Computed example of a mutant assay.
Amino acid sequence: MPQRPDTLESVLLAVELLRRIPRGRKITAAELHRQLKDAGMERTERTIQRQLEMLSRHFEIERDERSKPYGYRWLERAQHLAVPHLTPHESLLLQLAEEHLKHLLPTRLMQSMDGFFAQARRNLGDDSQGHNVRLAREWPRKVRVVATSQPLLPPSIAPGVLEAVSDALYGNRWLELDYQNAAGKRKPVKVMPLGLAQQGPRLYLVCRYEGFGNERSLALHRVRKAQASTLAFERPADFDLQKYDDDGRFGFGEGERVQLTFCIENEAGFHLRETPLSQDQQVRDCGDGWMEVTATVVDSAMLQWWLRGFGESVREVNSKPAQPLRTTTLLNK
């Protein structure tokens, strides 16, 4: 098979580098070399360095020469690589995706998409694009995800923590943390990151401490410092984040499923007829404005908080393990 001309190879390499140079942070030639190698493009690091030197002279790319290795990034106001074929609907989807996925995707992956997100924002902000663009720009003001409880402001996360955590989680690498628990006790820990979950305004890291086989959830806003190690680990085959959630672990449960029975005033419990607690939920009319609800759920502190939230509108709350049948009392009013 004939080889492609050197000129075409150089152009393809330049395009790939322009796509991968981020905004807001710097990237080195060595990092770009690894990315291209992972993508199947075999080039020497010196070739990449020469290309970067040339690109920084002809594009709005900053080269930080204060220390080696040099870092490269697009200037904030640079046009970057445009994506002119984005339709108004595609631009809208990218804008919504950026908002809702910014904490749930690896930080480096989000940063590598900066050019697309910026182009989507420019497309939606261009009044010369006509009626369809204006309609797409209006859409975020027409839809909203609303809170199911008292809204809270998100806690602040120390600079660099989310980036280090997401990098370690993505690369299956050990993570070294300076962690302060809810009681205020602060200590260094080494953990195996297994999952990241957003619960309301808070982010939690599911992990295993070094030397232990059980999982814990650490609040990211309580991490004072985080550093991804160079040491990799084999992700445990017996861990499943979906099952961890289904077992009620984010609700301070231990996975024990119980058959819950309680009486609730019709007005307070009407929503349970439309949004049941479980697939096997049963509702029985008790008369006098009350109904009895029976459902198989995960026993957890969150369940008890939810029940107590109804105050005097809930009574006769009992539960028994699904297996074996042994009756216990959760809450009586």
Rank of each mutant, 00 (worst) to 15 (best):
V317Q: 10
P22E: 07
T328K: 07
E256N: 15
L135Y: 02
D240H: 10
F252K: 07
L153Q: 15
D38H: 08
K102F: 03
I157S: 06
D288A: 13
E99P: 02
G251P: 00
L101I: 11
Q198C: 00
L169M: 08
D167G: 11
P88C: 13
A219I: 05
R284V: 13
M291G: 06
Q259N: 14
N214D: 12
Q35M: 13
T294F: 05
L101K: 13
D246Y: 00
A237R: 14
A226S: 09
E267I: 08
K142S: 15
L203G: 10
R23P: 09
C286I: 09
P88N: 12
S67H: 06
A29N: 03
G211L: 05
V206R: 13
A226F: 03
T328R: 15
G130P: 07
L175H: 06
L218E: 04
E292L: 09
F212M: 04
R141T: 15
V83L: 11
F250D: 04
T7M: 06
T329I: 14
P22F: 00
G269S: 15
D285T: 01
R20C: 08
G40Q: 07
L194D: 06
M54K: 13
L17E: 04
G253N: 01
S112I: 05
E90W: 02
E90A: 13
S166N: 03
D127H: 05
T294P: 12
V314P: 01
L94H: 07
R273E: 13
L260Q: 03
A219V: 07
D178Y: 03
M1Y: 04
L203E: 03
A226C: 14
R19V: 07
T47M: 12
H80P: 13
D247H: 06
G309D: 03
L330Y: 02
P69H: 05
D285W: 03
A82K: 10
E16F: 02
T44R: 14
A219T: 05
V283L: 12
L325K: 14
H103Q: 13
A158K: 10
L81C: 09
L205F: 03
K26D: 12
R20G: 05
L307Y: 02
A158Q: 12
P69Q: 12
G24W: 02
A168F: 02
L272N: 11
K185M: 09
Y209D: 14
E267M: 02
H85C: 05
Q51S: 13
R202G: 09
V317E: 01
L52V: 06
V293I: 09
C263G: 07
S56E: 12
A197I: 01
R121I: 00
A226Q: 02
D246V: 01
L272Y: 07
I157C: 02
E42I: 11
